[in-house]
């Protein structure tokens, strides 16, 4: 006679625990060659560190790091729309500078009293004229109002 008896089932793990996740991460790192690369890096650490320190400890590298820091400090104080105006004005100025072409004829020198000889130096005016064009373009750009940089950039209005 088999009387009915109950049994309290012990719960079985259904969620991955930290070890499972770690195992999976290790497997993924292995499959994608990351572990191999890290292994290589670790094994070659003295040599690689030496190269990095050598590269870091140069005036040029140190200047880059310090200058980027100064730029970041300055950028943190600038509103994006102002910065947009400045950067794109500079871009326009650069474009104007690069697009200026010397005319075919040689009578560009405008002439200014007191600098008579310089004013008649054609080659000097060939050099200065594009810079003036650039300043004019930059001046125009700085005058343009900017609602939203991305709208200004793409021409698509946005209320977002």
């Amino acid at each position: 006679m088999a009387e009915p008896i109950d049994y309290d089932v012990k719960p079985t793990k259904t969620e991955p625990d930290a070890k499972d996740e770690l195992d999976r991460l290790l497997q993924s790192l292995h499959q994608h060659g990351v572990l191999r690369m890290v292994n290589d890096l670790v094994c070659a650490n003295t040599a690689i560190t030496n190269v990095l320190v050598d590269g870091l400890n140069k005036d040029g590298t140190l200047n880059v790091i310090q200058n980027l820091s100064i730029l970041a400090m300055a950028l943190s104080r600038v509103q994006p729309d102002e910065f947009y105006r400045l950067v794109f004005a500079l871009k326009d100025a650069g474009a104007a500078v690069s697009q200026w072409r010397a005319p075919d004829h040689d009578n560009l020198a405008p002439g200014v009293k007191g600098t008579y000889r310089l004013l008649h130096d054609e080659s000097l005016w060939h050099a200065i004229t594009p810079l003036l064009e650039g300043l004019k373009a930059m001046g125009e750009g700085m005058k343009r109002p900017v609602d939203k940089p991305i709208s200004q950039f793409t021409g698509k209005p946005s209320d977002a």
Partner: peptide, 9 residues
Amino acid sequence: NPAIQRYKY
């Protein structure tokens, strides 16, 4: 891939 959305959410 719009550059920016036209209307405010």
